[in-house]
Amino acid sequence: MIEARNLWKHYGDNVVLERVSLKVQEGEFVTLVGTSGCGKSTFLKMLLGTETPSRGALLLDDQPMRDEPDADRGIVFQQYAVFPHMSVLDNVIAARAFHNPGVTGYLFGQRHRLATTEAKNMLERVGLSQALHQYPHELSGGMRQRLAIAQALINKPRILLLDEPFGALDPGIRTDMHALMRDLWNQYKPTVFMVTHDLREGFYLGTRLLVFDKLRQDPHAPQAYGAGITYDLPVGQPGSIESTLPPALQLKSLPQTLPAVAFS
């Protein structure tokens, strides 16, 4: 179980997050939405271990989480998500190699053969068995994200963090990726946290939707107050939740995406 206890994050006077308290059970699929700069990415980075809370605690099974990334928590970024100098197959084999103790990060002999088989199976599951020996720059954006997901899942992390993983993809490809993500989640049952700008994605893909927004506003000092979780909704049953929402959050009144962040 993952628990946030009265979590705050501020940089100097700039409060990004305040009073975030949350309990997430093993195996939930949590989607995080909100406007740009609302702190949802900061929250994800704290879960990842690259940012530390200014106040409060982040607990995994009642133990404080390590303040650096580790093998408990897999991550898929929007870009730069794979190693450009390794072929598709090597990217996944390397993920297995990193899981082993050892100085070089290379596997040899029996262990290399085993890792190769595992990697091939994983890549077949995400639909990349035709591209084993290609380099990431030869892949399309969608295939590259498939690879990143395969890499993140092969060591079976307990928590899978997704930072706008499909934000740079075409809508059609995004739909394929949603189906893949659902399948993999059903199969491996990691606890998933996904940041997204796409509200449909947030509603459709997860089992629980968190909306991040400012709880209070000071128009003269916009940085004085941070964001918190304004809505915490069970989702995933189409049609059931939507009608209970305030009009501003209802799906039909929403643009498909919030102001998109620039990506290159």
Binding site: L48, T50, D70, A71, R73, F77
Partner: peptide
């Protein structure tokens, strides 16, 4: 970060 999450 990715490598670290893979246990490197």
């Amino acid at each position: 970060v990715k490598a670290q999450t893979l246990g490197a």
